[in-house]
Structure formats: structure tokens, C-alpha cells
Amino acid sequence: MSKADVIVIGGGIAGVSAAAELAADASVLLLEAEPQVGYHSTGRSAAVFIRNYGNATLRQLNAAAAPLLEAPEGVSDRSLLSPRGELIIATDVELPALDEYADGATGLERLTAHEAQELVPILRADRIAAAVIEWDAQDIDVNRMLSGYMRLLKRRGGRVVTGARVEWIEKSGPAWQVRAGGNLYEGACVVNAAGAWSGIVGEMAGAVDPKLQPLRRSAAILPAPAGHDPRRWPVVANAAESWYAKPEAGKLMVSPADEDPVEPQDAWVDDMVLAEGLHRFEQAVTVTVDRVEHSWAGLRTFAPDRTPVVGYDPHTDGFFWLAGQGGYGVQTAPAMARLTADLVTGRVASIDPACLAALSPARFVA
């Protein structure tokens, strides 16, 4: 039996970054079901840091993560962020959604239809009733981030086992025993960072049920529009969140922003959903989609209130939740990793009590 102080289940960016932070003060073992870390949501992320993305709790996490992404000490020798910007456009019927997004947001600038079109020349100005831009939205170098946290974890003595899908979890006296990939592991604390499988892992442990739901999100790579170089364009999305487009290596990544409930799985693209989303994108621009070079899908897992689940389980001693990151997992990972290390090791968390309560799995106790 292999033993550690903390067993982290899940090798996405949430689990890897938390394991790296925990390894500064404890022996850590990370178990990943797939043959490599970052295989599912982390490796399929749109990878944009947007400070105003999410509800009030998530915006606090975004603010806490920003300085760690800009100066990732121990993870990289330079910022993980680079300039991009995010432009949100609205038709007449989408104006209430745009106003709702802007409510409580910071750093937004209102633009006219003509100004929006100057930033993204393929947009149809006659379809834009209003627009806002967040100049400070930035691309995240996810590969460098994940590999940097992996190096930090190993440098601090942490161990990583891949191909170790969890088969059962059981509390044995003061310790947890976890069987994964046919092997047995033991630790005083289990951190559940299993992404779309977090609900299943929690059920194995007899923990509270946060009603986590994986939602499929699709995307496609399109050739650059003829006569245009999109590399300096901002991300552009409609206020109704029914499509978005992001420059990607001189091409365009377009997503229908779909959120179809599915079981935890290696997600695949629904061709009809993708086609409908590309059609919505075509209605907002002056070009047509003639060719899709590549398409894929990933899973974004949410609790019903769309707030992550972070903290010790209220029913099950030593079982810690780090789940429900939805579409915010990459950009909030540095903050949630620090928070996880603080709470697991008993340090005072730097997040305010109201935010801690909003994240706590205790909110799911009737």
C-alpha cells in the first residue's frame, strides 16, 4: 500500500495546481484516471482570463488569481497571460443580457457599432445595438501553466500516478483507503478534484451530493476569413451567450457556447449542435463558414448555483471538495489551489468569510 498525507484525485489544472501547493507542507499523491494529466477539460479550454466572468463569488476568485497568473512564482519565469481583450455585442433583443453582464463589472468600455466593427472587421454593424469591451481580458498559456505546476509538484516531492481510475474509496479508522488502477493507496485526506467525475467520487466516499452536472461545450477551428488577419482581434461573443469566436494561431476558433447535459465521458461533438452554433455566428458577420478544419468538445461541470464547491465535506471527515469549476477552472486555479492548501493545512484563508461560505459544500445540506 502506497501512503501519503494527502491523496488528490484528478489531474486537471485544478488537481495539479492544488497538489503542487499542498506539497509545500505535506506528502502528496495525485491520481489521474487517464494516461496523461490535463486530458479532459484542461486540454480543451478556450484559455482566456476574463475578470468579469461569472457571479460575484467567481469574480472574487478571478481577482485573487490575477496576480498569481501575472507573476507565477515557482511555476514559470514570466507571466502566463498575454493581451487579447473581450468584445461583447448585443442585438436589440439582447440588450437586457448585456446590461446584466455589465452590472457590477469593472474595466468595461462602451463601444458603438462602428467602433466594434473597427476591432473585428467581419462584424455586421447593422446587427449591433450596443457593445462593450474588456480590454484587460487576456490569453492564458494553459500548457505552460499545467507543466509549470507539474514541475513544482515533483520538485516538492509529490508523486503522480496516471492510468489510475478510482474504483472505490473507504474510510479505515483515521485514514482513507483508495483503490485506483488496481492498486491501493492510503491518506489522511482525500481532495476530490475529479472534474466531471467529482460527483461519482463523492458518492463513493459517502459525501454530500452537490448535484454536479457535466455540460458539453463544442468548438471548431475555421480558416481565417479571406483578406483578414485575426491574430490581433479580441475574443468576440454575443450577449445572449449563444456563440463566441477567438483568434487561434492565425485562424478562428468558434463555439456555439452549447451547454448540453451529459454523463461524465470523453466528450464528442454533436454535429447538429455545432452547425446551429456556426449558423448563429454567420448571422452576426459578413462571411460564411465554408470549411471546418477541426472540431472537438469538452465538459464544463457546474453545481446548480454555478459556484465552485471548495471545502471539507460536512458529513465525511477528511474528504475535501475541489469541484464544480464549470468554465472558470483554468483562470481560477491558482487562487483555488492556494485556498485548498490553506484549508487543508489549517491556515487562515486569504479569501473573505462570505466567499468561503458561498464555496462551501455545506451549502448543500438540507
Rank of each mutant, 00 (worst) to 15 (best):
F319T: 09
G318Q: 10
Q265N: 12
G298L: 07
W197K: 07
A366G: 15
E86N: 14
D141T: 04
D266T: 14
K251P: 00
N238T: 03
D92I: 14
S41Y: 01
A257S: 11
I7W: 02
G206M: 01
G158P: 03
E115Y: 08
R155Y: 12
G318M: 10
V28A: 00
Q177M: 14
D258P: 05
A267H: 03
W197R: 07
F364Y: 09
V289L: 09
S17F: 08
E21W: 11
D290I: 07
D136H: 07
P353V: 13
G182Q: 00
V120W: 12
R217I: 02
G202Y: 09
E167H: 05
N55P: 13
W168F: 15
R155F: 12
A237Q: 10
L322A: 04
A102F: 04
G43E: 08
G182N: 01
S242N: 11
R280D: 03
A19K: 04
L31N: 06
Q331I: 03
E293P: 06
E203K: 15
E32D: 12
P214F: 04
I351M: 15
Y101E: 03
A47C: 04
E259I: 06
S147R: 13
P67I: 09
N55T: 13
H228E: 13
P225Y: 09
S147G: 08
V236G: 03
C355G: 08
A366E: 15
L152S: 01
L68C: 06
I133S: 03
A237T: 13
G107V: 10
A23D: 05
A24K: 15
V235P: 03
L146F: 02
A267P: 05
A335E: 12
E203T: 13
H279V: 05
G173P: 14
C189T: 15
G107W: 14
A20H: 11
T162V: 15
A63M: 10
G158N: 04
S45T: 01
Y39C: 12
A275N: 09
R110Q: 06
P121W: 11
L30Y: 11
P35H: 09
T332N: 06
R179K: 12
V273R: 10
D141A: 15
S27E: 03
